[in-house]
Design a protein around this nucleic acid. Sequence first.
DNA 1: CTTAAAACTAAACGATTGTTTAGTATTCTT
DNA 2: AAGAATACTAAACAATCGTTTAGTTTTAAG
Lengths: 187, 187
Amino acid sequence: MPRSKQYNEQEVIEKAMNLFWRNGYETTSMQMLEKEMGINKFSIYASFGNKNGVFLESIKCYKLRLAQIINKLKATSKGVAGLKQYFYDFIEFSKEKERGKGCLIVNTANELGEDANPKIQAELMKFTAEVKEIFANKLNRDIPDNASLIEQQADYLIISMFGLASASRMFNKSQVENYIENIFKNL
Amino acid sequence: MPRSKQYNEQEVIEKAMNLFWRNGYETTSMQMLEKEMGINKFSIYASFGNKNGVFLESIKCYKLRLAQIINKLKATSKGVAGLKQYFYDFIEFSKEKERGKGCLIVNTANELGEDANPKIQAELMKFTAEVKEIFANKLNRDIPDNASLIEQQADYLIISMFGLASASRMFNKSQVENYIENIFKNL
DNA sequence: CTTAAAACTAAACGATTGTTTAGTATTCTT
DNA sequence: AAGAATACTAAACAATCGTTTAGTTTTAAG
């Protein structure tokens, strides 16, 4: 029948994701997306519905990228030491040039208010809960079966991860590494 | 000579500041500012130049508000315990209803990219450095004169403050308090 | 080939962005 | 009371926002 798509949706979303990651949701315009993705606005809307759709797909894409270091964390037999390595891996993961790009999820959570799109909010919450659960699983290796303590420390680490994501955008390498070392001093 | 202003610049900036604090820089439009400040756009431009000018004045206003708990920190004879109290004071300071508003400075740092207005960027950096210096002074009370250790711990605390600001927007009270307790476990 | 469905280009949509301008109302000084 | 300087109102500015639409090109099936 008709002609087939001349672009790969996964490829163009990867480009969109990087744009959102660097610039945030509001600052990233359809014009910028058009240019970066290399396809016409019509094609963007045909493939993803609207700007929100592009963003939601970008989050999926981000999770896939992040899965590389998340899977490494899941796989390690180390407990707390593995978590600490994950924090270091994240710095490398979010590195841009001098300063880092932070975390797309954390950047978005910090940018959007309470009246933001519910789908996006739900996605952020869900993702945060998932990562926290992975943290809790790792903690379970080094800590005797103390559910409430593990819960507490997992909360501590997920919030510290928010701090790390912020910090990677503002502070230099030695400051961020020093931050990680201090986080894990009392675990 | 002519008629005098029918509004107090400090009062209307306070309202603008609260709007920026809740919604962020980009999301806050001149239309919203007009409504919230209760004066016409012309008056806003006459008093503050442009949107950037309103924002810069809002930051000044924010610093004045924050000075209440900063001064309390400065005044206390306690060292680390005083710092911990400051973190708790900040939660109260940034409280909105269920979730907090975070910190206007941190919110802005997280929202704006590297191509943001240089004046604003400089203001954020300057403020961050100031608070870090206050932290360092307090640490000096409990730690023997070890300049590099104090520098390290002040870095740790200022980044943790970024984490706290983020966390106050996303996590509930017990999670945030648990976070603070963990931060100060090893100080 | 013909044809029809989908992908493309490019222009325009109304709404809203930050900013300015023209015109009116007010008030202090002389 | 007259005049002049400033604050005000309200409308319009160009530019951009996210989104849609009309028209053309491509392509694969009949």
